[in-house]
């Protein structure tokens, strides 16, 4: 008997105008699995991720979370989204709220969690990402790396089944990338199911169970990181890796 996948995309297609961004995407992510999605820019990586929580509605195909198809109905969709955490490239913290309030907002407003309980949860999550001392700081007082860690805590506060990372480190100064990757690494180690769109090949290699290569809206190759990165089968994968990996002697 096969386990029900935590995330399953079947035949997902998405176009913007005449541009077909995703072409018949099929992807299964098991519970606790960490899957990195890599590929050239414009290949549809972000769109794929955004289809998982229906920030983009697929034109056709189905997305299921823990065996349940993502519903069309607005109310049901809101509930489904609450179980899928998302971390954005540009953090998208709420600037009019402190770090603590950012993290509390979901549990209090969506889950109707009592405030004192939400505060306790938020504080524990902030200390988990190493920012207990920044609880009362507004986002504009935080560095990029700190903002992104608050954003991760905010997503975790909803106790999601899956976490989606959309180029979570691409907007960061190089010296701040490490602290965010460390938080993601810890999460993966705790068994969180993660879908990670990334340009950090080193991270993908080290942390993911599987790497998926997307090119021109299609999955051209997928496999275990060490295998895929050292012996890519597909021409598009080789081209892409040649561009981003330093030349090997």
């Amino acid at each position: 008997m096969r386990e029900i996948p935590m995330v399953e995309l079947r035949g997902v297609c998405k176009s913007f105008g005449n541009l077909q961004v995703l072409k018949d995407i099929n992807l299964r992510v098991a519970k606790g699995e960490v899957v990195s999605i890599i590929g050239p820019s414009g290949s549809g990586k972000s769109t794929l991720l955004r289809c998982v929580n229906y920030l983009e509605r697929p034109d056709s195909g189905t997305v299921s979370i823990a065996g349940n198809p993502v519903p069309e109905d607005e109310n049901a969709l809101n509930k489904a989204r609450a179980k899928v955490g998302m971390v954005f490239q540009h953090f998208n913290l709420f600037p009019h709220m402190t770090a603590l309030e950012n993290v509390m907002e979901g549990p209090v407003q969506v889950k109707k969690m009592p405030k004192h309980e939400a505060k306790e949860l938020a504080l524990s999550l902030l200390s988990k990402v190493g920012l207990a001392d920044k609880a009362d700081a507004y986002p504009r007082r935080l560095s990029g790396g700190q903002k992104q860690r608050v954003a991760i805590a905010r997503a975790l506060a909803m106790q999601p089944d899956v976490m989606l990372f959309d180029e979570a480190t691409s907007a960061l100064d190089p010296e701040l990338i490490g602290e965010v990757l460390q938080v993601m690494r810890d999460l993966a180690a705790e068994g969180m199911t993660m879908l990670v769109v990334t340009h950090e090949i080193g991270f993908a290699r080290e942390v993911s169970d599987r790497i998926v290569v997307l090119a021109d809206g299609q999955i051209v190759e997928e496999g275990r990181p060490e295998k895929l990165l050292s012996a890519p089968k597909h021409q598009r994968t080789r081209e892409f890796l040649a561009k981003i990996l330093p030349a090997r002697a």
């Binding site: 929580n53 920030l55 607005e74 109310n75 809101n78 509930k79 989204r81 609450a82 179980k83 899928v84 955490g85 998302m86 954005f88 540009h90 998208n92 913290l93 709420f94 907002e105 979901g106 407003q109 969506v110 954003a151 905010r154 997503a155 909803m158």
Partner: peptide, 23 residues
């Protein structure tokens, strides 16, 4: 307001109305 704000709110499971009002 940056559209990313609405997306972040919706990704937490907020309805459109709640996201408007709170965020």
């Amino acid at each position: 307001i940056d559209p990313g704000q609405m997306e972040a709110a919706r990704s937490l499971g907020m309805s459109y109305g709640l996201a408007m009002r709170r965020i």
